[in-house]
Nucleic acid binder design. Structure first.
Lengths: 163, 163
DNA sequence: ATGTCTGCAAAGCTTTTGCACTGAT
DNA sequence: ATCAGTGCAAAAGCTTTGCAGACAT
């Protein structure tokens, strides 16, 4: 399935470049391959590092240009999170649900078929939907535990405040 | 309800500043008032303009500082959209569903109780949820119509490509 | 009086742009 | 041979930071 996704993405890119009579540069294919090989979220620097490790240096400008192209072709998804912009390979119509801890910033993938179903069944006015991003904010169990400990301590020294 | 929200937000801010022994500056209250008066999305410049129209000039740095404080207190929500960072007053536990046109970037509020219910009922692992942001991507009816017209034209001049 | 908050300007990041060279067609 | 694409460096945005002075407590 993942292998297919990469091939499928390459086919979309091929088709686009041929139709538009734009160039099939090695950079574009190397970047596409990297995007679909990394797995999960990554930022521009991580993408650059990944390519460089495979002895393929690509300039910042080209990375941005190419990612913009991929965004337009809907081959990648962009998330603008607290800790910067992250990209992610996009699998046909697949959507993304995340839970984000508002304290430590940790992002976890959420698998909730009921949510996906509800969103797909929603009757949207004057709109033709094609994928979504859901960010559920809250507190992860780790931070929750820390806060609990803190509160317990506080009960004893009433006025003390953390800074 | 909206009036209450503003008062409620002010109470939260008051409480925080008193507990932390931080200052109740006119800026903070003016900004809070503006945030809850503007209604809908706004960016930093729009917030600044709003205040300036009411003869209340606040520096960029203070706007950022104060918005960061409000974010921590969960009095405002921040959205990082295609066309920049937007803020929005946050109403207790209220969540936000948007549909975003991937062509023109238009953002519309979505009212879908079924989606909200599904998200609230989702069993999240190791997580204590508190609000969410949903972005449904797709094509708005306006752009959809434009594309249809374009495609109709194209059927006749087969190889012509738009640039 | 104290120490936080504000405003300013400078610095820091991320992303975009202009231009000359390279290379896919 | 073309001219789109790349790389580089500079520019442009947006956001943060350091510091001096202002002001809420």
């Amino acid at each position: 399935m993942d292998k297919n996704a990469k091939e499928n993405a390459k086919a979309i890119l091929n088709n686009y470049l041929e139709t538009k009579k734009h160039r099939k540069t090695p950079e574009r294919y190397a970047i596409l391959d990297a995007v679909f090989s990394i797995g999960g979220h990554f930022n521009l620097v991580q993408l650059s590092d990944y390519l460089e490790k495979r002895s393929f240096r690509v300039s910042r400008a080209t990375l941005y240009n190419t990612l913009r192209l991929f965004l337009e072709l809907r081959l990648v998804t962009r998330h603008r999170l607290q800790d910067g912009t992250k990209y992610e390979a996009r699998y046909a119509n697949e959507s993304h649900s995340h839970q984000i801890c508002t304290i430590c910033g940790k992002v976890t993938e959420v698998n909730a078929p009921n949510i996906v179903a509800a969103i797909n069944e929603a009757k949207l006015k004057r709109f033709y939907p094609d994928g979504f991003s859901l960010y559920i904010y809250g507190i992860c169990s780790n931070c929750h535990a820390k806060i609990s400990r803190l509160n317990n301590t506080r009960k004893h020294k009433q006025t003390k405040n953390k800074e």
